[in-house]
Design a protein around this nucleic acid. Structure first.
Lengths: 231, 231
DNA sequence: CCCATGACTGTTGTGCACAACACCCCATTC
DNA sequence: GAATGGGGTGTTGTGCACAACAGTCATGGG
């Protein structure tokens, strides 16, 4: 009888424990990825707990997951520090991403439907606007949306989770390089736009393998450009 | 000056916080994989905390990681339950393992040295003994050792971690099938022995790619046999 | 002036008490 | 007899207080 409370005063009350946990996890992960919390930054458990309206205990559960994912590191007596994104350490992650990104076409591939192609159209239009007057921050946020969107191309959940974890480990390094003027921004934007158009072309032919190879190739080339510029 | 305590009363005192955490994590994970905690079993936080000589708080940190890895699931008011190993849900994990197992040869491959080949010899001798009078439990424990050992063939840490996580998600399903007489045990043992000999042959030729493909093929075939038997 | 030392401050780690919740059992009622 | 309601019990989730620890700054002695 008490399965659903009547007239919940706050919509947040309906969220389960795990939902609120995921919400905090995604929020903090996004801030780290967008360099709102740059490498080396100290995250205050007390402040974050207050911000999310909870105590340290549930928040520490979230930080623990972020630590297992390699985004933060808790040091006793010092603080919870955002790990630094060093390209030499992330080279292995990039190489793994290149290989894994080719797999959605082979492991439970999902052919896109009309709604998917429609949304892809919208993304392509948005990317065209970014080329002219986009900031690195805006672009990265956009890239995150596109990434999540393209994950739908596979129904293999473990693969999706692995790709997601690796993505968030590497993306902030690109953003850092872009902000610090290490990259040819307009060039990067153009390449991304072309990638989306190429993806559209491949998907219209129902060639998921081609689409996956395109993404894989672009990750590889993106890393090459990064590595050349910031040594 | 106080960097190292004098005359530690207990060697465990020297272990860092993270070391003790990892020790608990590996211990519980092994028990789950060896079906000492079968699917559906309730893990008592209080009992486990007492056993490891700590309180619930650090132990919950470990259970949280196991939950993120998909081995247990905590339900409020009920308990921490070992997830069930269903072959239909694990099919995606198996398929991903097949693909990932081929990668060590391409991502930072490490050629085995003499000590490695020596240890491989020992493993092959041990596997020969298991064929005649081995139990499923003994075999799985042995398989875990061999798996960890073969991870040395790549220096790509993210790949190793991913392979490890996926391994522990699937292996207990094989053990369950073996215990419940769903498999031709001697046949399985023989196949594993042959796999190790084939690996030895490939590694003697310094052909890491061949070695990786052999492992990949065996995971694929092992899943096929499992799937046929337990539907 | 320089260095050592110790108190102070702020952080994460731990333990504990209680809240929130689910399940079981049994009495009660129709 | 069957359904229902309520209390009891055991579990995980949360909040809080304190321990353990690292860094900083001031102070005193050389």
């Amino acid at each position: 009888m008490t399965s659903k409370p009547l007239l919940p005063s706050d919509p947040a009350d309906q969220l389960s424990v795990q939902d609120r946990r995921d919400a905090m996890h995604h929020a903090i992960r996004k801030r780290i990825c967008l360099l709102e919390y740059p490498p080396g930054a100290r995250l205050s458990e007390t402040e974050l707990a207050q911000e999310f309206g909870t105590s340290r205990t549930p928040l520490r559960r979230v930080l623990a997951r972020l630590e297992d994912e390699g985004l933060v590191q808790s040091v006793h007596g010092v603080g919870t520090l955002v790990t630094d994104a060093d390209i030499h350490e992330l080279e292995h992650v990039y190489q793994l991403r290149v290989e894994l990104t080719a797999l959605p076409a082979r492991l439970d591939p999902r052919l896109p439907d009309a709604a998917f192609m429609q949304k892809l159209d919208n993304f392509i239009m948005q990317s065209a606007k970014i080329i002219d007057h986009g900031t690195p921050l805006e672009f990265t946020e956009f890239d995150m949306d596109v990434f999540q969107f393209l994950l739908q191309l596979t129904g293999n959940a473990p693969l999706r989770e692995t790709l997601e974890r690796l993505y968030y480990q590497t993306k902030r390094l690109w953003l850092w390089a872009a902000i610090n003027a290490k990259l040819d921004l307009v060039g990067e934007f153009r390449i991304f736009h072309h990638e989306l158009e190429a993806l559209q072309h491949a998907l219209r032919s129902h060639d998921l393998d081609a689409a996956a190879r395109i993404q894989s190739a672009h990750i590889s080339m993106s890393f090459k450009r990064l590595f050349q510029k910031i040594k």
